[in-house]
Amino acid sequence: MKEQEELIAKINELAHKSKNGGLTPEEAHQQGVLRKKYLENFRASFRSQIEMMKVYDKEGKEVTPNKVKEIQRKKGLRDD
């Protein structure tokens, strides 16, 4: 989590610098790389949350999508 916070801080620092006076070509490249890394981390975290989720309807019946169930079975998270 600390890595993600540091990543966001550096992205924000470069964004402020960009708005106030511009970035050097190296800083612009670094900004792109950092943004890409942030999105990769975000997507991996989000995917993990979705893969761990079970969905239930109002009657208490599980209605988790089959695609998610299959992923959970492959990861050993389900035994049905």
Rank of each mutant, 00 (worst) to 15 (best):
L34S: 02
E59S: 13
F42P: 08
E5M: 12
M53W: 00
L7I: 06
H16K: 13
S48T: 09
E5T: 10
E27T: 01
L39C: 11
E40W: 06
P25S: 03
K10L: 04
G76D: 09
N66M: 15
T24A: 02
K19T: 06
A15T: 15
K67D: 07
M53K: 00
E40R: 04
N12M: 08
Q49S: 12
F46K: 14
K10F: 06
M52E: 00
L39D: 04
N12Q: 09
E6N: 02
K58Q: 10
K74L: 11
Q72C: 06
L77C: 04
K67A: 14
I11E: 03
R43D: 12
L7G: 04
R47Y: 00
Y38V: 08
D79F: 09
E62R: 05
Q30E: 13
H29Y: 06
L23G: 02
R73K: 15
N41G: 10
V55M: 14
L23W: 01
K75A: 12
Q4K: 08
G32Y: 01
G22V: 07
A9I: 05
D79I: 12
K10E: 06
E3I: 07
K10I: 00
R35I: 13
K36S: 12
G76V: 07
K61Q: 09
S48M: 11
Y56P: 07
F42W: 14
R43F: 15
K10S: 03
S18K: 11
I11R: 03
K17R: 08
G60I: 02
A28F: 06
N66L: 15
N41T: 12
Y38C: 12
A9H: 08
V68N: 10
I11Y: 03
Q4Y: 09
Y56S: 08
Q49K: 09
L7T: 06
E3T: 00
E3F: 12
H29E: 13
A9F: 07
K37A: 00
